[in-house]
Design a protein around this nucleic acid. Structure first.
Lengths: 147, 147
DNA sequence: TCTGAAAGGCTACTGAG
DNA sequence: CTCAGTAGCCTTTCAGA
């Protein structure tokens, strides 16, 4: 399912999703039609889940980011925290994890006041306790996959 | 710097970076030329830092992800861990954080054996101790910004 | 700074080998 | 998968408000 050429296309598309078929064709060393067919397959199979622009968090008014680990207050209750929190747009990611907490969230906010408000909202919405780790500096993120 | 129209363009481009100027123009309610000019500015200013394809981690052979908190073994030594670890392509993100540890990494690997090897490599490369939290399930990530 | 139009280039797509 | 041919759209530019 993932031969050498597919991986090459994925790496290239990951790095520059706006490239034209002709450009990809050249970089990958395959005919345009072949690249087109593979790209379609990769998209319809879900290997390529979508495309995103990477925005400067500061420029869009979200200079502060943090990790928030959450733990249900009452373990006997049904736990659908990810669903309950999905509407909060400040939450960029939600994973369930092994370890002390049940989930870890990655969030982006405008500042400390917004972070406090968000934490309160999370506690109320999902009936959880939280443990927040503020990000001081981001050295890199969203790195494309390597060949 | 970020008026209503810019944010609208950013939200749209964030969701669908492969849209043409004509499509963006229609969705944003602005002439093609105006959208083009704004887009160029947003790109050259760095507000749009780049474009990425979102790949299915399983399909590209990285079904296991984890957070790794790292702490320098010798606090008196100069600390340039992010630089020392940059060459490890399994590391997708690196943040410095407030709290017990100095940094937190987000990594993607093929399986437990690879995770163990990566952790060893990190400890050696950067002279740090590590604390790893395995991700069990990812409910969402890379969510685009909202208006 | 935006709109609108015009032109040319290039793109995606298809079908045959 | 490659190679072409075609139709259509896209980017770019420029003048004007």
């Amino acid at each position: 399912m993932d031969d050498r050429v597919d991986l090459s296309i994925l790496a290239e598309v990951s790095r520059d999703p706006r490239a034209t078929l002709a450009q990809l064709s050249e970089r990958v060393g395959l005919g345009v039609s072949a690249v087109q067919a593979r790209l379609r397959r990769l998209e319809s199979e879900g290997t390529i889940a979508g495309y995103r622009a990477v925005l400067d968090p500061e420029a869009v008014g979200r200079p502060l980011s943090a990790f928030i680990e959450i733990t249900p207050l009452d373990p006997s209750q049904p736990d659908n925290a990810p669903e309950l929190l999905e509407h909060l747009s400040e939450i960029e990611a939600c994973h369930s994890i092994a370890g002390d907490a049940a989930y870890i969230l990655f969030v982006r906010v405008a500042g400390p006041r917004d972070l406090e408000a968000l934490i309160r909202e999370i506690r109320l919405s999902a009936s959880v306790s939280t443990r927040t780790t503020v990000v001081l500096q981001t050295f890199y993120e969203n790195r494309p996959i390597a060949l």
